[in-house]
């Protein structure tokens, strides 16, 4: 168990490694449905979240659908 520093939606965040994208989404209490994630600017499909692990200095962007015209 080591602490790593990642960047989530332009905010620094410290997490305990190993941590998968699924675990990060759960930690953020976000719903899977209607959520999309990019790691280091590459979109990661939902079925790959459980096996995609984060490394030190990774950038994660989490998007969701909101009201809009």
């Amino acid at each position: 168990m080591t602490q790593i520093n990642i960047n989530v939606n332009n905010q620094p965040m410290s997490v305990i490694s190993p941590i998968s994208l699924s675990e990060l989404i759960a930690l953020k209490q976000l719903k899977d449905d209607g959520t999309a994630v990019a790691k280091n600017a590459a979109i990661i499909s939902k079925n790959e979240w459980p096996t995609t692990y984060l490394s030190d200095n990774d950038t994660v962007d989490i998007f969701t659908l909101v009201a809009g015209g």
């Binding site: 989530v8 939606n9 332009n10 905010q11 953020k28 209490q29 976000l30 719903k31 449905d33 209607g34 959520t35 999309a36 962007d61 989490i62 998007f63 969701t64 659908l65 909101v66 009201a67 809009g68 015209g69």
Partner: peptide, 18 residues
């Protein structure tokens, strides 16, 4: 019906639109 995409970092920021 149209929607938009937005960066969202926490459950509280996830709106109920969807």
């Amino acid at each position: 019906v149209t929607l938009a995409m937005k960066r969202v970092a926490s459950h509280s920021a996830q709106d109920e639109t969807l």
